[in-house]
Design a protein around this nucleic acid. Structure first.
Ligand SMILES: [Mn+2]
Ligand SMILES: [Mn+2]
Ligand SMILES: [Zn+2]
Ligand SMILES: [Zn+2]
Lengths: 147, 147
DNA sequence: GGTTAGACTTAGAACTATTCTAAGTCTATA
DNA sequence: TATAGACTTAGAATAGTTCTAAGTCTAACC
C-alpha cells in the first residue's frame, strides 16, 4: 500500500493487483498503470482515452467494469462533485477536495490538519462510512476589470 | 427569508417569489408550495410526483426549469451525493448532511458547532463558493445476528 | 504441453436523469 | 383589449453508465 506511485513496472502492478485478489489481465494492468502513475483524479472517459492513446484497445465496458472493481477492492475512491460525472481518485489516503466548477478541476486537500469539530452523534444504529469535504471555489472576479 | 416554512398560503408564496424577481405562475407557486411546506430534500422526480398527485398537471420540463430557476435565485440549494441524481434542499441556511447510501436518506446537520479547522489557503485567484460536508453512514451490522 | 470451466472482455443496445426544441399559452403592461 | 415576450409543454435528444449475449483468455488440472 505504501508503494503505490513509486516506480510501477508492469510486474509490480501485477503484484499489486494479485495482493488484492484481482486477476491481472492485460486490460486491468494497463488501466492500473495509468491510474497509479501518480495521484490524480480521472473520469471514466479520461481513463478510456489514456489507455487507448497508443493503439491497443480496451473497451469502454471494461474501463467501467475495472474502475468498479478497483473501487470495490479499495484501490481507488469515487468522488461526486456534480451530477452525471464520477471522478476516480487514485489517492486513497483520507483527504478532501477543492473543486472549481468553472474549470472542472479537483485538487487534493490533505486531511492532516483539517479537523471537523462537534459533529452531532450519528443517527441510531448507523456507523460511519466516510466523510467527504468539498470546498467549492471559483475564479476571482478582478475588481479592476469587471465583466 | 425568515418566514419560509411558516404558514405559506398561496398568496404568501406569490409574494416570496415576487420578492426574488420570479414571476409567480401557477406552476411555480405549486412547486414552491411543496418545496416550502417544510425543510426537506427532494429529487426532481419527487417534486414532479407531489405536484401532480391530485390531478392538475405540471410537466417534467417545467419542474426542471423551475428547480433550476429557484437554485439560481437562491431559494433552494443542490446537494450531490451520488452520481445521476440531484437533491434539492429547501433549507438554504449553511448546514451539512448525513447520507445513508443504503436507504438514500439525506439528513441535515446544523452547521452551527461544526467547525472546519486548518483548511489550507485557497488556490491563487480563487474565492470561496461554499463548503459541502457529507458524512456517509450505513446501517450498523448487528454482531448478534450477522448476515 | 493440452483441456477445460469459468472468469473476463467486447460491441452495441438499453437505460436514466436531465436538457433541448419548437410550437402553443399565459402574463404583464399599455 | 392588444401585444411582446416570458413561460410551459410533449416529445426528441443527450450523456454517462449499465446491461446483454457472444466470443476470448486465464488458471488449474492432467
Ligand atoms: Mn475528467
Ligand atoms: Mn428523492
Ligand atoms: Zn483526491
Ligand atoms: Zn439539507
Amino acid at each position: 500500500m505504501g508503494m503505490k506511485f513509486q516506480m510501477m513496472q508492469p510486474a509490480q502492478i501485477t503484484e499489486l493487483l494479485r495482493r488484492r485478489q484481482i486477476t491481472p489481465t492485460s486490460q486491468r494492468v494497463k488501466i492500473a498503470g495509468t491510474l497509479f502513475a501518480g495521484p490524480a483524479h480521472f473520469c471514466a472517459e479520461d481513463v478510456y482515452a489514456r489507455v487507448n492513446e497508443d493503439d491497443a484497445e480496451v473497451s469502454k465496458a471494461t474501463v467501467y467494469n475495472t474502475l468498479g472493481l478497483f473501487v470495490a477492492k479499495g484501490l481507488v475512491r469515487q468522488v461526486f462533485v456534480e451530477p452525471g460525472k464520477v471522478f476516480y481518485d487514485s489517492n486513497t489516503q483520507p483527504h478532501h477536495h477543492f473543486y472549481d466548477s468553472g474549470t472542472g478541476e479537483l485538487t487534493d486537500i490533505d486531511a492532516v490538519g483539517v479537523a471537523l469539530h462537534e459533529l452531532p452523534p450519528l443517527p441510531a444504529d448507523t456507523e460511519l462510512d466516510g466523510v467527504d469535504v468539498i470546498v467549492r471555489i471559483r475564479q476571482r472576479q478582478s475588481k479592476d476589470r469587471p465583466a
